[in-house]
Structure formats: structure tokens, C-alpha cells
Amino acid sequence: MLHILRKSWYQKTSTQKHIFILIAIGPALLGYLLFTLYPNITSVYYSLLYWTGVTKPDYVGFDNYVKIAHDHFFWNALYHNFLYTLIIPPLILIISLFLAYLLTYKGYRESSFYKVLYFFPNVLPVVVISLLWAFIYDGNFGLINAFLKMISIDIGEYYWLGHEKTAFWAIIPPTVWAGVGFYVVIIMNAMAAIPKSLYESAILEGASHTQRLYHITIPLINGVLRVCLLFIVLGLFRNFELILVLTNGGPSGSTDVVGLYMFNYAFGSKVGTATIHDYGYASAIGMCLFVILISIKLIMDKFLPDKTVEF
């Protein structure tokens, strides 16, 4: 009789546990299915259509993908994506690593304040950051032109975001500035987990700050740096809001990226010299972007394997 009661109590407890888990993760799982998985699956179908989002869709098969192969605007945007990927992630990682090391091991009393200060851009909306840098680059009252004039370099009313030769490079500083603070905090937390005894031993051996950084810190947080690099690279391909506000891909497509090009096609903004609205073609671009992101992840796993060191 006691055995039966124990079994009944166990089954009741197990059922309650499953019900609790379902209630706990149900809303999040439902949101993921409705707003992430379902749109991604339907995008595969939409990529086979010509559809403005309003009119009746026409099935065109793989014509959208054939069009992408001959679309020089798409390849120009993809080229800019790869250029930004070669330049911005190393800058963000190097600056973040340097600042995190200073704040963690130099013992500044103001470290907590600097940590908040560096993280501040991540609290601001992207639109605010974009408008802030638009004022900095402005030709009439921008800070850059004012600074150059102060040191006797008068370039007149030069609009940095309005010229093809400078617009592309002008996107890099705000992107780096907006991203550094987040990774400073992550890297600082990873450094804080390293045993102090390792550094004490290195100091007794006469190791400099540079030697400690390269031979102790970086190897022990290699896994964290790898994840940070992955987030930065994937974010550069997916996010385009800053470029949308600053230049909208101009002038003459010199700052266009794949995400922005897809957005413009989907919502009827100006693409090249014409205003086009084709949700099906935008979905095909999104599928190409998905394949690119998966390929980048696999390449990084191949050439940058996780070498996390346990201590």
C-alpha cells in the first residue's frame, strides 16, 4: 500500500513539473514560433513569388534568384558588407580588449564609471546615435570641420556623408563607437574570472603587461573572444539601421549593404534610380543572406576552433 502511494505521489509530482515547464517556456516558445520560425519558413515560399505585399502574388519560381545573380546593386552591397567585415570587427575587438584590460588590471578608482561610460552608447537607440554622428559630420556646423579649421585645415563646408570617397569610411567610426562598450563589459567579466595567482606568478617572473596579456589573458578568454567576433560579424550583415539613417545607402550606393538593399526592395524605397516594391525579391535576398551567414559561421568554426582553457 505504501509503495502504491509513493508511486502515485511521484506521478503527480512529475505531471506538475511538466505543466510548470510548459507554462514557463510556453509564451517564449510561442513567440519564437510565431515571430521567428514561421516568418523564416514563409520567406522561402515568398522568395519564389513576385509580390508587392498587397496585390495577388505571381509564382515565378527561381527567377528571383537568377535576377540576384545578375543584379550588380546586390553584389555592390555584398562587397561593402565584406569590406566592413574586414575592417570593423578587428577594430572593435582590439579596442574592447585594450580598454577591458586597462580597467581590469590597472586598478583605476574610476573603473566603474568608465565601464558605465563605455556602455552608454548601447543604451541609446540606433536612431539617436545616427543623428548624433550626422551632426558631427555636418558640413556647416559639424565637429570634424570645426576641429580641422581650429588646427588651420580649412576644407570649407565639406559634407562627409555626401561624397562617395568619404561616405563609406564615415560609417566606420560610429559603428565601432556604438559597439565597443558592449564587448568591453563582456571581456571584463571574462577577465575577472581568471585566477589572480596566475598574474602574481607572472609578475614574480618579471613578465610585463604586454606579456601577461598575450600569454595569460588572451589564451584564457579565447572562447569569449571567439563568440564576440561571431556576434560582431553576424551583426554587421544583419543590422543596417545606422546606415539607413545616415545615408540610406548613398551617395550612389557607396554605403549600401545587403540588409539595407533588402529592406528598400521590400518596402518600396528608392533602389538605384528607380522606386521598386517587390516583397518576393526581397525574400530571395533574405534567403541569400541566410546562406551567407550560415557559411560564415561554418568557416569561423573551421578556422577559428574553440580552444577554451579550463583553470
Rank of each mutant, 00 (worst) to 15 (best):
W75K: 13
P173R: 01
G280Q: 04
Y214C: 13
G31W: 01
F82Y: 07
A100C: 06
F311I: 12
I25S: 12
S112W: 00
V54E: 07
V185T: 05
A193L: 08
M150N: 11
L225W: 00
L48Q: 04
G206Q: 08
I221F: 09
R109H: 07
F240E: 00
F35Y: 14
I94A: 15
L103K: 11
F182S: 13
Y137T: 00
L293Y: 02
K115T: 08
S43T: 02
I186G: 03
S8Q: 12
V184T: 06
W51C: 13
I171S: 09
D301C: 01
L234I: 09
N140D: 02
I232G: 08
T15M: 12
H209S: 15
P195T: 06
W75N: 09
K297G: 09
V309N: 10
S208R: 10
L230W: 02
M1N: 13
T308C: 09
T85S: 15
T85W: 08
V127D: 03
W169N: 06
I218N: 14
F303E: 03
I187K: 04
I294G: 06
L2F: 09
V126L: 11
C228W: 05
F73Y: 06
M191V: 04
K67N: 14
Y46P: 02
P219G: 11
L22F: 01
V184G: 06
N189A: 14
K7W: 03
A190K: 14
H215F: 14
N248F: 02
E157L: 11
I92D: 05
R212S: 12
K297P: 01
I218F: 08
I221W: 04
S201C: 14
N264K: 15
I203M: 14
W51E: 07
Y214T: 15
F141C: 01
V271C: 02
I136W: 00
I41Q: 03
F20C: 12
Y46W: 14
V291H: 06
E241P: 12
G142N: 11
K196M: 09
V126Q: 07
A28G: 06
I194S: 06
A170N: 02
Y45S: 03
C228R: 02
F237G: 07
Y261E: 00
L204A: 10
L242V: 13
D138R: 01
A282H: 04
I19F: 08
F119Y: 03
I4H: 03
W75I: 04
S201Q: 13
T166G: 06
V66M: 10
V184K: 01
G31Y: 00
F135E: 00
L2C: 11
F237K: 04
I136G: 05
Q11Y: 13
D154E: 08
F267W: 11
H72M: 07
Q211V: 01
L99R: 08
E157W: 06
I153R: 06
V291L: 12
L220N: 13
P39F: 02
A284F: 10
S201V: 11
S201P: 08
G53E: 02
I232T: 07
V54T: 12
G223S: 10
L213R: 11
S43A: 12
L103D: 00
Y84P: 12
P121I: 01
L230N: 07
M150K: 15
I194V: 13
T273D: 09
V128Q: 09
K115N: 09
N145P: 12
